[in-house]
């Protein structure tokens, strides 16, 4: 039988109890503690303050802090649940939980919708999709003529925007994704299954006396 007695006074500010976080997510207590090892690495890469700044997030993602990227910014803003300009450990675990292979499909669909709804109007508009395509071309070697971008947008909106009002609402998005399940591939991180083997040092820093998996 697992028996959890949290030790006190070892947690930095903003660090939530792993037992509580495990109870709210698909992660076990050990996995939350292993995620804390990753969190500590990222959050101390520029300033060791127990919080992930946008710069630290970009550094972890691209191994290059100068690389501005629309999509990385968008992910950061969605992880920054409390809109504080930084990601604390609770935000980090709850947000990564959506990317867990066992997370509900509906959570993944909703997260992807928010990701692409750049101005948070509740709709993915054609102009937003165009902006994302242009951002993609800027970051990659790919070159597409403006007419080609418009053809891609036409094709996409004919398929996704069922009522043809020029924007994709949540239910249109759900239908579109169910017909194109590969779109959700980015929403699952198989790495999250092996987090305790990737960061085994969590065992030495464990805050619970006994760890049940």
């Amino acid at each position: 039988m697992g028996c959890f007695h949290s030790k006190v006074a070892r947690q930095p500010p903003g660090h939530e109890d792993p037992v509580v976080l495990a109870s709210q997510t698909a992660f076990s207590v050990s996995e939350v503690e292993a995620l804390y090892e990753l969190f500590k690495m990222i959050s101390s890469s520029v300033v060791d303050d127990g919080l992930i700044s946008k710069e630290e997030f970009q550094l972890a993602l691209f191994k290059n802090r100068k690389k501005e990227n629309l999509f990385a910014n968008r992910i950061f803003d969605l992880f920054d649940v409390k809109q504080k300009g930084v990601i604390d450990f609770g935000d980090f675990v709850r947000s990564l939980n959506v990317f867990h292979p066992n997370a509900p499909q509906e959570d993944k669909i909703n997260f992807a919708f928010k990701l692409y709804d750049l101005d948070s109007t509740g709709f993915i508009e054609r102009q937003e999709v165009k902006q994302m395509l242009i951002a993609l071309l800027c970051e990659s070697e790919m070159k597409l003529a403006d007419e080609t971008i418009e053809i891609i947008l036409d094709k996409t909106f004919i398929e996704a925007d069922v009522d043809q009002d020029g924007k994709i609402d949540k239910s249109e998005w759900q239908n579109f994704v169910s017909r194109n399940p590969s779109l959700l591939k980015i929403m699952t991180l198989p790495y999250l299954r092996d987090i305790t083997t990737t960061f085994p040092s969590f065992v030495f820093n464990s805050e619970v006396d006994e760890i049940a998996t």
């Binding site: 993602l61 691209f62 191994k63 990227n69 891609i152 094709k155 980015i186 790495y191």
Partner: peptide, 26 residues
């Protein structure tokens, strides 16, 4: 696959900024 045969979201999802697996690379 030629990009023009892909829909916009398939293309967008190839962005490096959406590939969170790199967070786990030490």
């Amino acid at each position: 696959v030629a990009p023009v045969t892909m829909n916009a979201f398939e293309l967008i999802s190839t962005s490096q900024g959406l590939n969170l697996s790199t967070l786990f690379e030490k």
